[in-house]
Amino acid sequence: MGRASTAERSHIGDCLSRVRGDECNIEYDGKLYSLTSSGDLNYPDLANFPVVRASEVSPVKESPDIASLRRSSVLVDFGSHSCIRRVDSQPYPIIKLAHPDALSIALLQYEYKVLDRLALFDLPIPSFSDKPIFESGKIRGYQMKELYKLEHDEMRLRSEEIKRAVKQFHEAGYSHGDLSLSNVMKDDQGRIVLIDVSFSGPIGAKIPSWVPNWAYEGATFHTASDMKRMQSFLS
């Protein structure tokens, strides 16, 4: 593998996802790498990737199926615990794939199970495949229909629809836990959809230890945090 070109360096910069304070994942040339640095991970010098000053770069071991999926799909977006990929010409073209660390995989497994339960109530959630993506016996990802972002002005114009969507969650006995501008989208019919339910849970149930403290106050799932966050981004 040669040095990264200017375009490739820009792409690498868009593919950084933090794993721990001194470690992050980098996707480059269809492969996933782990970068451990003794320097500043906010501004790593990737000009000569995979050679990075004051850092150790190593390939991340993934199953042949996951490695093939990564090569055959296009990276669309990424977050702290997962990335969003696209494979055209499939009924469910969007793939949500957990990062390879244990916490990210646990969060995505939990999210898929919650989606499975929420689907029983016909709630405004993504339309997803009932065949998740497995790796080593664990759910590593799942496929869903394409969704579209709402512009800020559209968000305000459709505030009543968003409130109804959140109310549907609560009436079904679930909190969302991570309501934000980026987690409210629309489907191809223009209907409001709430995404990223890895911090969602049955109202009154004990909150799992991996859910961050900022998501809820107290030890059980409740609706107050949803209402507070919704009012914040709709105001």
Results as ranks from 00 to 15, higher is better:
D101R: 06
V87I: 15
S182Y: 11
I207L: 00
S17R: 03
E135I: 03
A119Q: 04
T223D: 00
G177N: 06
D88S: 15
I12F: 03
V87D: 02
G2L: 08
E161R: 13
S34L: 13
S209N: 07
V166R: 00
S129H: 08
K113I: 08
A54C: 09
G30M: 05
E171F: 14
E146K: 00
K163T: 13
L118H: 04
D130C: 02
K145I: 05
Q168V: 06
I95P: 05
S209M: 05
R117A: 11
Q189K: 14
Q231E: 11
A98R: 01
V51S: 10
K145D: 14
S82I: 00
E111H: 09
Y43E: 08
S104T: 15
F128Q: 00
K113C: 12
W210E: 09
S72H: 06
P126N: 03
I125E: 08
I12H: 01
A67F: 00
K163F: 15
N25Y: 15
N183G: 11
R117I: 15
Y33H: 05
M227N: 13
R71G: 12
L69S: 02
V193C: 10
R3P: 07
S37P: 01
S235N: 11
C15Q: 14
C24G: 01
G204A: 08
S198E: 15
A4G: 09
P202D: 10
A67V: 11
S82N: 10
S10N: 07
K167I: 11
A106G: 05
E146T: 05
